[in-house]
């Protein structure tokens, strides 16, 4: 644990926490522009959050502590994830505390918290969204783990810093068949995890198509703000992670000074913006798939991950 690491972790958390809504705004703006709309500007999510935070929060009668505390729990989990995932620095003190599997687990537990909150309301919408989200989450989990497995083979560790450092030392290693397959798998998985097209449509309010929205229908006020903030952090963390797994340029090392951290923040911001823009651009060209086609998509992702693993074993770049 170094001072730079602790500072880096704090910067990471701050950057993710503060920048996540911006990322969402950026993606919306990219879509709007590509669709020929003016868009509401990249800062709109901040305005939404501020508005929600000032409004009265209504708790449905009959709901329990689960409903009341889930938003805070979700946001807190995301902050911990943000501290763990190497976005700005590879020297976060949280790195040894939680590896990639823990990160995946924390993301999943946040999902479960939201599912339970949705069920807690007892509405048909909540149940519907929960049911769909559960199905997706259950299938995303194996896909993401196998893809991660493929990436961890190279570093021979599942600790994120180790993987990222290994890539930083030998950037060419990711350009293997295994790396490519894993990348494809991860893109699908991230789309599913963050409720993006083609799995879920973040902009819809139509009961037949929505998953995430159906679950949060009963939320209002500051609780809704926390839920939305948590969702944006999830997006930011995953996109940032994907970026650093494949292109760890500029990430701060264990002994980086303040300048290093600034560079790190700048680098990750640029990479995320680029990647998120690409994802948003991609979303313009796809439609949401039917709910019952989603498993096929995720199974495909799982298969890609598995292929990546076997490729990593059998087409090892340097015979390891």
């Amino acid at each position: 644990m170094t001072g730079a690491g602790v500072a880096g972790a704090a910067v990471q958390v701050a950057a993710v926490g503060a920048g996540a809504p911006l990322l969402v705004g950026w993606m919306r703006q990219v879509r709007a522009l590509l669709e020929g709309r003016i868009g509401s500007g990249v800062l709109q999510p901040y305005r939404d959050l501020r508005k929600l935070a000032r409004k009265q929060s209504i708790v449905p009668e009959g709901s329990t502590v689960v409903f009341a505390t889930a938003p805070a729990f979700i946001a807190a989990t995301m902050l911990v994830v943000a501290a763990t995932v190497p976005t700005v620095t590879v020297a976060s003190p949280m790195d040894g505390v939680g590896d990639l599997f823990v990160v995946v687990g924390l993301l999943l537990i946040a999902t479960v918290a939201l599912i339970l909150a949705a069920l807690d309301t007892g509405t048909p919408f909540g149940g519907m969204g929960a049911s769909r989200e559960t199905t997706i989450a259950a299938l995303v989990e194996p896909a993401i783990l196998v893809a991660v497995f493929a990436l961890s083979i190279r570093a021979n560790s599942s600790n994120l810093a180790a993987i990222v450092t290994a890539t930083a030392h030998r950037p060419g290693d990711v350009l293997t068949p295994a790396g490519a397959l894993a990348f494809a798998a991860l893109v699908v998985v991230i789309a599913a995890e963050t409720g993006r097209l083609p799995i879920d449509n973040p902009a819809t309010h139509l009961e037949l198509t929505m998953v995430h929205e159906a679950m949060v229908l009963e939320y209002s006020g500051h609780r809704l703000a926390l839920v939305e903030w948590g969702a944006s952090m999830r997006l930011a963390v995953l996109v940032g992670l994907l970026a650093n797994l494949y292109l760890p340029i500029g990430i701060a090392g264990a002994h980086a000074g303040a300048a290093g951290l600034v560079v790190g923040v700048g680098a990750i911001a640029a990479k995320t913006a680029l990647l998120a823009g690409a994802l948003a651009a991609g979303e313009v060209f796809v439609a949401k798939v039917r709910m019952f086609r989603v498993p096929e998509l995720l199974a495909g992702s799982f298969l890609l991950g598995l292929l990546a693993v076997t490729a990593a074993y059998f087409i090892a770049p340097r015979g390891a």
Binding site: Q56, S57, I58, V59, P60, E61, G62, T121, G122, T123, P124, F125, E207, L217, E218, G221
Partner: peptide, 9 residues
């Protein structure tokens, strides 16, 4: 915070 009946769409 206020407790209120379900909105449920």
């Amino acid at each position: 915070d206020r407790r209120a009946a379900l909105w449920a769409g």
